[in-house]
Amino acid sequence: MKNTKDKIDEAKRASGADSCVECGRCVAACPMAEMYAIFSIEMSPRGIIKKTLMGDPVVEDKNIWYCTECNAGTDTCPQGVSCRDLIRKLREAAVDENLLENAKTCKCCGRAFVAIPVEDFVFARLKDEPPNVFGVLDICPPCRREVYLLRNA
């Protein structure tokens, strides 16, 4: 079992975070700005990368759980840094350390499939829908397809 520092180092290597020049293009492309009223530099891709590079405690930070993993930041990065891969690895490290309060697990298969701030965003957008719709959001998309199959076939 690698310890957290090794995992973070590997995350930096895999995502190429060391090449970040702080241009901020990822922040401009990031959909989080539209999703969260509290969007701040702390949760932006640039902010997470900076924090990781500075060696600050980032695995325990709630801010790594706002990302939707859409990869828009990676697409626009001139240095080819993959903010998504970094966030993924950081989240995996957090899950390994049992810091699960920000990850939603699927009721059917038990896998963590969405970050809770992301899910809250979806809930907020769907607030006018009848309540049973939210029951469906408790299970991950692959399991949801299985449920749909068994109910409707």
């Binding site: 939707t68 859409c70 992301v118």
Partner: peptide, 11 residues
Amino acid sequence: TECGLCTMACP
């Protein structure tokens, strides 16, 4: 942006 929230919301 391929975030996949549409898949998340679709029942």
